[in-house]
Amino acid sequence: MSTTSTPARTAPRAAAAGRGPGRRGAGVTNVVLLATATVLVLIPFLWVVSLAFTPTEDAFGAPQLIPEDPTLGNFGTAWDANLGQALWNTSVVTVVAVLTNVVFATAAGYAFAMLPFRGSTALFYGLVSTAAIPVSVTLIPLFLMAKQFPLAGGNDLLGHGGSGLLDSLGGVVLPYVIGPMNIFLARQYFSAANSDLAEAARIDGAGEVRIFTRIYLPLAKPLLAVVSIFAFTGVWDDFLWPLVVTSSAETQTVQLALARFLTSGNVQYGPLMAGAVLITLPVLAVFLFNQRAFVSGLTDGSVKG
């Protein structure tokens, strides 16, 4: 009796459907428009690349994209500014942040959309609204909490006696573990999903965890792609928090490494831009990898009601 086994996939199958505009290949106009927009959008970035190959003394000289006297030296200088270690540190922090966000923020957003409980709406708005507080105000309290983190950096159970998470990668990752806006995003995504699937699966005796991981997550690849990309860039581009929480070269992040070339009144444009190019590449690679989720045939459309 308790082993009803009929699969509850009652959703219409898109496979049977013909070719809609979503599937149709792009026309020439489409590609030309997209290419034009891309070039326009890339102009400032192309200057970043151009400057990366330009000696600092000549930076922003003649407005021509191909430097007269290109050099690779800037990349060496940038790399020597502890960039290797910084890239490693930032990557470690990023991997943690991506995982925690993909797992916990997505699960929370799913529950807020599909498994509401008493007070869940209030809780949801409470959590998400914390994204509307400027960092300037929360920076110092968060710093105090990092310092008093129990059982870390020589601290006792009450958070006294040591330096806690200060100057450690654990401290760096602290504000990125869960992005409130990622919960919001996941909730929006799942609130548009077809809840009949879950209902049917429940009647068939599937547990909620199974319903989430086996039915809804596979349909949410674009969501997971976006959440990981956002978690990734969030860590990658932040400056203020790592500045405050780290102090040694061993815990430096990429933006801090770049700051070496940002001396007030005496910016080293060449190495700065070269460093910016170098640290953009890994993010681009991750994006390229992730964006496949947007075309995967797995989003067969049944998620929508």
Binding site: A35, L42, D237, I279, L284
Partner: peptide, 20 residues
């Protein structure tokens, strides 16, 4: 729309968001 190379366009358009 899916076409060969669309991934490159998407990535390029995303570049502004990731440059420092």
């Amino acid at each position: 729309r899916p076409f060969r190379g669309v991934g490159a366009f998407r990535s390029a358009l995303y570049v502004p968001h990731i440059v420092s």
